[in-house]
Amino acid sequence: MIDGQKIKDTRKKLGISQQDLAKGITTQGTISLLERNSTSPRGDILAKIISRLGLKLEDVVVDNEVLTAQRFLDEADNFSMSNDYDAALATLEKIESLGDKEQEAHYLFLKTNANMWKSRDFEDALFGFNRILQMRNKQVDIFTVLATCELGVVYLERNENDKASFYFEQVPDLLANINLDDYVFWTLFIWKSLTLYYYRMMDFDKCMEILEQAEAFSNRHFTPVFIDSLYYTNALVLHDKNGEWSSDAIKYLLKSWAFASFTGNQENIKKSSETLEEIGYLPK
């Protein structure tokens, strides 16, 4: 089996984008799937990819155990996306061993996040997210950013806004060191948390700025991930800025309900439906 992480690490070390690696060989989407161990390209295509990276086949061949762990981590990602934390935790339990430090951080983040929202035990969450920062040893990667962002979320839930701000205000600078196109799911996840923070701080202009950025990013990558949550926040921002449910605010509420229905996000279906019902726009 092929180690997609090895391909990604080598590409990033060489400063090559997914698009550049794919040029003349395959599509950027295939490179993205390959790096996430979600596809196995034809032999001729794989040979050209690893040749462009200066690798040999034996450099990227791994045992099934590593790929199995990554497959379960990806499945848990999908469950977390729809707030199905019981299923996410059950999937993580299937993992017998983890292949590297990145998989360990990925696993710990998913487990900590799922347990936090399932039990609302924010003390354990503080420990889990801080442990990730220690594991990564101040290395700036996607899991460093995620842990930092979610520490902000924990303090926001505890109504400790000064502590929340300490972590949230670090996130944009940390993201500047990440190739966001490599982490579509996690980028939108982080922006979702950031928009919640700025909304709670009543910084509506900053909130709208991130919402617009997230919507454009989502459209560019043809993904509905978290777009229902982003649209819901957008509706709230417009309502609070204007002091009424304007036609634009209602439009975003309806879009939030539609996308939540499409992705099966029961929590957001309930939330958007209740708000629409309150203002007399309950969808049929």
Rank of each mutant, 00 (worst) to 15 (best):
A164N: 03
L126E: 08
F127S: 15
R120C: 12
Y198I: 04
G243R: 03
N137H: 06
P172H: 00
E209M: 09
F122I: 06
Q139R: 10
I210E: 00
Y183N: 14
D203M: 10
F226N: 07
E212D: 11
Y231P: 04
G243T: 04
W191Y: 01
D182K: 08
N137K: 10
R136G: 05
N113E: 08
N137W: 00
W245I: 06
E150W: 15
L211H: 08
M202W: 14
P172G: 01
H221N: 06
N177C: 14
S247H: 05
I227C: 13
N179I: 11
L151M: 08
S193T: 10
N234Y: 12
R200F: 14
D182I: 04
Y252L: 03
Q134K: 14
A147D: 01
F259I: 06
H221F: 05
V154S: 02
T187G: 01
S218H: 02
E209W: 09
F189G: 06
G152F: 10
M201D: 11
Y231S: 08
Q213L: 06
F166L: 11
T187A: 04
A258I: 07
P172K: 02
S247Q: 10
Y252K: 03
F129N: 12
R220G: 07
R131G: 15
A214T: 13
T148F: 13
L156S: 12
E209Q: 10
F143L: 10
F143D: 12
I178F: 04
W191M: 02
D124A: 15
E212I: 07
L133V: 04
N115I: 05
I142E: 08
L156D: 11
D182F: 03
R131M: 12
F129S: 11
F189Q: 09
P172D: 00
F189N: 09
Q134I: 14
Y199R: 01
S165P: 03
F166G: 06
A147V: 00
F226C: 04
L238T: 13
V140Q: 03
I250V: 11
G128M: 09
F222W: 12
V154P: 02
L133G: 06
D248E: 13
F204T: 07
L194S: 01
Q139F: 00
W245A: 05
Y231F: 09
S246V: 11
I190E: 00
D173T: 13
S247Y: 05
K241G: 07
